[in-house]
Simulated scan of single mutants.
Amino acid sequence: MQTSQKTTERTQSQSWLESNTAKRTKCLVYTRVMGYHRPVESFNIGKKGEHKQREHFKEGKGSCC
């Protein structure tokens, strides 16, 4: 996919989100911190920055054993 096409898709999705703001519901994101789960919105500014920098992964098929 070309960069200009990605930019166009991103702009379209942003405009769709902005036009449908009233229909959206708030979603709480939880993360595991020191053995228990906490909502990310309750983090301080520094911890929120760390959370944004984390790399997320998806476990693929056949990754076991």
Rank of each mutant, 00 (worst) to 15 (best):
R54Q: 11
T7R: 14
E41G: 00
Q53I: 00
H51A: 10
N44Q: 06
N20T: 12
L28V: 10
V29N: 04
E18K: 12
T31A: 07
T31L: 01
S4W: 09
K47G: 01
W16F: 11
Q2I: 11
G62A: 05
S63W: 05
N20F: 06
W16T: 02
M34P: 00
Y30W: 13
S4I: 15
R24V: 08
R32W: 02
L28A: 07
T3G: 03
S19D: 12
T31S: 03
S19F: 01
L28Y: 03
Q53S: 09
M34F: 05
T8I: 09
Q12K: 15
C27S: 06
K6W: 03
H37K: 12
H56E: 04
K61Y: 11
V29W: 01
Y30R: 10
E9H: 07
R54N: 07
T31F: 00
E9I: 04
F57R: 08
K58C: 07
E50D: 09
N20M: 04
G49L: 10
C64T: 10
M34A: 15
R10G: 00
G49T: 13
E55G: 01
M34N: 15
I45R: 11
G60N: 07
G60Q: 07
L17V: 03
E41S: 10
E41W: 08
F43R: 02
T7G: 04
K48F: 02
L17C: 03
K6E: 11
R10T: 02
C64W: 05
S4N: 09
E41Q: 09
L17S: 04
G62I: 00
R38L: 11
Q53G: 05
R10L: 14
V40I: 08
S13E: 15
G49F: 03
T8E: 15
V33Y: 07
Y36L: 04
T25K: 15
C27Q: 13
W16M: 02
S4V: 15
R24C: 06
R38G: 00
W16R: 11
M1S: 12
Q53V: 00
R10W: 11
S42A: 03
K26S: 10
W16H: 08
K26W: 03
K52R: 13
K6N: 08
V40R: 05
Y36H: 14
